[in-house]
Amino acid sequence: MVLLAFLVAITWAIIQLRDLFAAVMLTGIFSLISACLFMVMDAVDVAFTEAAVGAGISTILMLRTLALTEGRSDPRYNRLELGPLAVVVAIGAVLIYGTFDMPRFGDPNAPIHTHMVPRFLEQSSEIGIPNIVTSILGSYRGYDTFGETTVVFTAAIGVFLLLSDLRRGRRVDDALRDDIILRIGAKAPIPFIMVFALYVQFHGDYGPGGGFQAGVIFAAAIVLYTLVFGLAKAEKIFRRRRLELLVAGGVLLYGAVGVVSMLFGGNFLDYNVLAHDPVHGQHYGILLIELGVGITVAAVMVSLFFLFARRQQV
């Protein structure tokens, strides 16, 4: 409850702030507090993702956008607007009216806890993975996850189209070239981050984590590398062509798993047929599709970073 009140306070502060940098930083804090709330409500995977994405990726992208555009919002447009206020108060009232027939918060007898969930909790015989979130994500609702990977892929295509064709621009700040201590200091964690990413990737069956989070973390390592060695050098290793290959490859890998299971006589994304023992099949299937997600997400995040970083203020 206290955290929720915090969140409301932060949002109101954002409305008032003219300095966009501060507003973006507050948005990052907003995401972190949300992540804490998700944690409190037992959603560890969601908390992990929100922290990595909301507080991490989104903030970086927003800050870069600000650096490319303007840091302040025009005060002329920063007044209280009565029309919109009335609209949101009305909608809010309707929504609150709708809450009165809702099951109470935390009620274990609410329909959503009694209808589908028992099978998911008993699923160890079907899938055999302790982290239920991973088993639903990867198998029962694997098609949703395929869609989600495709959404990320779509966004990458959009950003490629929007940002890549314009003037190449001179190299942006080749960051830490001169500062040898910082350079070594910043270089040191890179391999560890990568190892951690791999851990998150392959340990998703047992703890929170999985392809998406791992991809983001892996991308973070490369971003750090870029900051240390400069964009030019990083781009030599991660050429646009190779990134495109990886972005598309991850989606294709995911799809291929589904197609292979169709060839083996199952339905699309039916991993049972991938091995003699259905439970093993489920393991292979989830492993492979998570890898596909990880590849696409990592490649997309790195591409986004490069594309935004390469642009220069017009």
Partner: peptide, 22 residues
Amino acid sequence: SNPVPHVLMLTAIVVGVATLAL
């Protein structure tokens, strides 16, 4: 706790960041 909403929201967060990047 119910894992289904968690799964759904992982997807929603990813969709959100994709939209934001665009």
